[in-house]
């Protein structure tokens, strides 16, 4: 048991956690069939929160006890995990009894995911191209994604931001922004 908890608390356990979460998400999809379909998003959130609470509770067994301190570092996480589980279970009960607010109408989720993808790509690119180039490309891509097509607006905003951030943050406020491998 102790070995399992130690394994689960290390970064080598990520695949196991991801697999377990996928199983939980799959379960929530199974539960949200039929009349509960209009609560699918809420059910996924409830199951995910219960997964988080259980995960923290299990991992708390791996937290080292230091007797000299006089109080355990396990107390707070267990208390909050129990509270989270308790309130989430009540939320789940209300949802299963169809007494919770229904999911909102799904909007343009694809655009949200694309936006997050562009932002994540720009973040990854900062290691290589630095903040200024990376953020200017991000602004350009996001403007295009949001439907802006005027070349002057695209270039002036991306270029203007680069100049503004360089002058204000680097020159005036003297913040060290990431320079990247290519320009560093």
């Amino acid at each position: 048991m102790e070995e399992l908890v130690v394994y689960l608390g290390g970064h080598g356990s990520f695949p196991a956690w991801i697999a377990a979460y996928l199983a939980v998400a799959g379960l929530s999809f199974l539960v949200s069939r039929g009349r509960l379909k209009r609560y699918r998003g809420r059910l996924v959130i409830c199951f995910s929160l219960l997964f988080i609470a259980s995960g923290f509770f299990i991992l708390s067994f791996g937290v080292r006890e230091v007797e000299a301190v006089g109080s355990s570092a396990r107390i707070a996480p267990r208390l909050w995990a129990a509270g989270l589980a308790l309130f989430t279970l009540e939320m789940l009960r209300l949802t299963l009894h169809e007494r919770a607010p229904e999911d909102p109408k799904t909007g343009d989720v694809k655009k949200v995911l694309l936006t997050a993808g562009v932002v994540a790509f720009s973040l990854w690119g900062m290691d290589y191209a630095g903040y200024l180039v990376s953020s200017a490309s991000m602004i350009l891509l996001l403007l295009l994604l949001f439907g802006e097509r005027r070349p002057l607006v695209l270039l002036s905003l991306a270029g203007g931001w680069t100049l503004f951030s360089w002058f204000v943050f680097v020159r005036v406020l003297m913040l060290s922004l990431p320079t990247g491998i290519l320009f560093g």
Binding site: G9, S13, F14, F56, V69, A73
Partner: peptide
């Protein structure tokens, strides 16, 4: 209080 690490996954 105790300085032990918690839920950091190393």
């Amino acid at each position: 209080l105790s300085g032990v690490s918690r839920f950091t996954f190393d």
